[in-house]
């Protein structure tokens, strides 16, 4: 082996490997027309967020597509989930402080595994002012593949999911660290 590594055959081998590698790199370059990303939606970082329309506690529908151009925090919660309850005040504080800069917090109650009375009670008890939506048939919980509560998705102004945080309670600083840069984006 040592002999091979100092031989001319090794030079030839190394050059051939590197040239093949360079050619493969060129060959597998992504066309600029595709590099901007497709329209596939998926509940994960880098993908356009799946769109939905849900009713709030007053029965008014809210379409996520109407929030394009704003930074959207989608927090999926239930009233019986301790960490969900614990992080709600932090979400509220960040919403109050940043809504003038274009931040929207959507609290999506996974009503299919909760009940509306308890959900309303928790919102009242905590004095939540950001929009709270009812996912009665679990469609959003399913489309966003929520497998643990709470789960928080942060969507940028272009509708792309930039961060997914599973579990909680979410620290206010962690939330701010995720949204500050997004709020500064045009």
């Amino acid at each position: 082996m040592s002999d091979f590594l100092v031989s001319r055959r090794f030079y030839a081998f190394a050059v051939a490997v590197l040239l093949l590698g360079a050619a493969w790199t060129i060959q597998s370059r992504v066309p600029l027309s595709d590099a901007a990303g497709g329209q596939l939606t998926s509940p994960r970082e880098g993908f356009p967020a799946p769109e939905f329309t849900l009713e709030d506690f007053q029965g008014a529908p809210l379409a996520s597509s109407s929030l394009r151009g704003q930074v959207v925090v989608i927090n999926v919660w239930t009233s019986w989930c301790g960490p969900c309850r614990a992080e709600m005040p932090a979400l509220e504080r960040v919403y109050i402080a940043e809504k003038s800069r274009g931040l929207v917090v959507l609290g999506v109650n996974s009503t299919i595994q909760d009940n509306e009375t308890d959900a309303r009670g928790l919102a009242r008890e905590l004095g939540i002012t950001f929009p709270l939506l009812l996912d009665r048939d679990g469609a959003v919980t399913s489309r966003y593949r929520v497998r643990a509560l709470p789960t928080t998705f942060i969507v940028d102004r272009r509708g792309i999911i930039r961060s997914v945080m599973i579990g909680g309670p979410l620290a206010e600083a962690a939330l701010r660290s995720k949204i500050n840069a997004l709020l500064a984006e045009p």
Binding site: S28, V30, L32, A35
Partner: peptide, 13 residues
């Protein structure tokens, strides 16, 4: 990606 080039490939090379 950087202008269509896969950055990991360049680093790997």
């Amino acid at each position: 990606l950087f202008r269509g080039w896969r950055i990991s490939q360049a680093l790997a090379l």
